[in-house]
């Protein structure tokens, strides 16, 4: 009997979540490909920024995210424990309240959880804390490497989100995907 693959545990930050809810590939949103292979958790602060405020401002991606949230495709987690020492260090490093919430929530989760963020400063802070952050394009690469996604689809996704990233950013992921580097 074939063993069922375990979905990748992910905690999404707002920017990466919005990007994944903005672009369609083969008439399907990127986030819909992700829910097939990832267990997606978002902190309540991220829900507020992406869904609640997005709906208030009338963004289509917020409506799409709200639908998926209501359908139970991803889960909202409240930060139940905030370490004061960590909070103070993060604030002194220039992190905002919702940034801290993302870090605290990630620390509450299993060590295998990948933090999906496109925010360089948050990425660095998470790395320094021993968490496992990964940029959205590199999550796509990881999904291919773990056998969850086929290379042609991954390439389409990466090429589609290219305008949201600086020059060379997607190129690096694409070259890794092709095995050139």
């Amino acid at each position: 009997m074939q063993k069922r693959k375990r979905k990748i545990s992910t905690l999404f930050d707002s920017g990466a979540l919005i990007t994944s809810a903005k672009f369609h590939i083969r008439k399907k949103l990127i986030v819909d490909y992700l829910v097939d292979c990832c267990r997606i958790i978002i902190p309540s602060e991220v829900k507020h920024e992406t869904v609640d405020m997005g709906l208030l401002f009338g963004y289509q991606d917020a409506r799409d995210l709200a639908n998926r949230l209501n359908a139970g495709h991803f889960l909202v987690l409240n930060t139940t424990f905030r370490n004061n020492e960590l909070e103070s260090a993060l604030t002194n490093s220039g992190l905002e309240n919702a940034d801290c919430a993302v870090i605290h929530t990630c620390k509450q989760m299993s060590k295998q959880t990948r933090l999906i963020t496109d925010d360089h400063k948050l990425f660095i802070c998470a790395t320094r804390l021993g968490l496992s952050p990964i940029f959205l394009p590199d999550l796509i690469l990881l999904l291919v490497n773990k056998g969850w996604m086929k290379t042609p689809l991954a390439m389409e996704i990466l090429e589609t989100v290219q305008p949201r990233y600086t020059k060379g950013f997607i190129e690096l992921t694409l070259k890794r995907l092709k095995g050139v580097i």
């Binding site: 707002s14 992406t50 919702a98 940034d99 400063k121």
Partner: peptide, 14 residues
């Protein structure tokens, strides 16, 4: 962070 930038501009994240 992106959130600090939003705050400095008086904007919401979205």
């Amino acid at each position: 962070t992106f959130r600090r930038m939003a705050k400095e501009l008086g904007l919401e994240y979205r």
